[in-house]
């Protein structure tokens, strides 16, 4: 456990394939009002008037979640998102990966992705599963404007910008007919979901 100030703690992300259950468990800990997860870390946030402390027995109890248990596991959703491969960086990506644009599209749309975590902005999901041939660096300096629903890649992730914003990922396309963040329902994608992209006809 490491302190993030006096109101939050972080720990290595437990090796648990049921992220929904993991988040439910840590949010039920005494004094905890929120939790956040990344590829490497899990953080819990405490109410303002509560000392940031978790009993070691509770942390140990997470071990029980590490093994996939079909009786308690929330089923992972399979989600298909239709995309148009029209991103402004598509040709640069093809050049950097030493392949044709068609090959980039074929590789990206044939892979299956897991939502590892959400962060950066509301509804922005970090999807793991990018074919290694498509790994490219972020832009040296972020663009000031990335359009809403832009499909992008960076490092070993792919993702979709739920809102127009600045951003440093390489833009390869546009997600169609999907609302990634709804003010009533919250984020469309959740950690643990499985995602495939289908090229629009």
């Amino acid at each position: 456990m490491q302190r993030l100030g006096d109101g939050a703690l972080r720990m290595p992300r437990p090796k648990c394939d049921d992220v929904g259950a993991l988040l439910r468990v840590v949010r039920s800990w005494p004094g905890v009002v929120d939790a956040s997860i990344t590829e490497e870390w899990l953080a819990v946030y405490f109410a303002d008037d509560v000392e940031a402390h978790v009993e070691p027995s509770l942390i140990r109890s997470l071990d029980a979640l590490r093994v996939r248990d079909p009786r308690t596991r929330s089923p992972s959703r399979e989600i298909e998102i239709v995309v148009r491969y029209d991103g402004v960086d598509l040709e640069d990506v093809a050049r950097a990966c030493e392949m044709s644009v068609d090959r980039v599209i074929a590789l990206h749309s044939s892979a299956s992705y897991d939502v590892l975590f959400l962060g950066f902005m509301p509804g922005f999901a970090y999807l793991e599963g990018l074919p290694p041939e498509l790994e490219v660096s972020r832009l040296p300096s972020p663009r000031t404007h990335v359009p809403q629903n832009a499909l992008a890649i960076a490092g070993h992730y792919t993702g979709i910008y739920p809102f127009a914003s600045p951003g440093g990922w390489r833009l390869i396309g546009t997600a169609l007919d999907v609302v990634l963040f709804d003010s009533a329902r919250g984020a469309y994608l959740r950690a643990g979901d499985r995602v495939r992209f289908r090229q629009a006809r």
Binding site: L23, R27, V33, D34, A35, S36, I37, A43, Y45, F117, L118, G119, F120, M121, P122, G123, F124, F181, G186, A187, R190, A191
Partner: peptide
């Protein structure tokens, strides 16, 4: 409060 894991 409660939506950090959705990026909010």
């Amino acid at each position: 409060v409660g939506y950090a894991s959705q990026g909010v």
